[in-house]
Design a protein around this nucleic acid. Structure first.
Lengths: 152, 152
DNA sequence: CTCCACTCTATGCATACGCAACGAGCGGTC
DNA sequence: GACCGCTCGTTGCGTATGCATAGAGTGGAG
């Protein structure tokens, strides 16, 4: 089997696994409070120093187009879950900051979400396999993000 | 580190990698011809004996709700890429079959898509790592699909 | 200092999506 | 054979999304 088809098979396997797990996770996600994509946005903010990012940088972490991220930020700001402010170092930019309310909701939903993940993903692979999978995915993401920046 | 957080870390890593790769793939996918999700639908049909599935079974492979799959099938049928027919063994069911046109488009787009995958995913991991990643993902998907059926 | 090319985010519009509900079909019970 | 509970796919509706575009801001060249 050529290297090319090995890569295709690996990607297909990853994508299929992600669809399968995401379907199971979606089934028990509290969508009445927040959507999975909105949760992902809050997650990305929570990982940043001071829980803040410019919309441009936030967009790079999400699977939405830039106008959709802009709109989602608007909706979350309207609910008081994030705050928007102009970037003092670049007037073009908008800084999005996780509010206390947003952080509280993120944590509350996150605990429940983590339980689902532990059962579904944790039940499928051993700890050693999980660490192995994590390492491979980090390498894949790092190299891919690099290529995207390089291609620009 | 507990098993629970190992599972959460592994899932986060997988999800982030998937977002990163999908962003890069989307950037060069021929969306003027077909969307990535429509392509995924055709892909799932192409994998079946006789390239056909009931909508219910097709839905299980996709990240859309059942009505959305129904609508997408309608749109693809309108373009002649798939054909719909009533299931002779169960009048409630609709069989979706990949047409010659649909198969031709799927293959053409698939070749281009496979090149992107080879460069992006193949450039990030070695052949041994790719096989390892594929094996772990197959195991994850198999266990997860099993749990979904079990929970029903 | 002015101008211009580009960056960055927001907005208008058309389409796709999810949710809720509906109607046709199936299979088991009486 | 009739009835009922459930399955399965379709449809109506409101919202989210992507595409194209506009306008404000930046930085570098002249």
């Amino acid at each position: 089997m050529s290297e090319a088809s090995t890569a295709v098979d690996a990607w297909e396997a990853l994508f299929r696994a992600q669809v399968s797990v995401l379907r199971a996770l979606s089934a028990e996600f509290p969508t009445d409070e927040i959507s999975l994509t909105e949760y992902d946005l809050l997650f990305n903010l929570s990982r940043q120093p001071e829980h803040r990012l410019r919309i441009r940088d936030l967009h790079a972490h999400l699977l939405l187009t830039q106008p959709s991220v802009s709109r989602m930020v608007d909706r979350l700001a309207a609910r008081g879950l994030v705050a928007k402010s102009t970037d003092p170092s670049d007037g073009r930019g908008t800084i999005v900051t996780l509010t206390d309310d947003g952080h509280e909701l993120y944590r509350r939903v996150g605990v429940q979400h983590a339980r689902s993940i532990s059962r579904i993903v944790g039940g499928a692979l051993s700890p050693a396999e999980l660490r192995q999978l994590a390492a491979l995915c980090v390498k894949l993401r790092t190299a891919t993000a690099h290529e995207a920046t390089h291609a620009s």
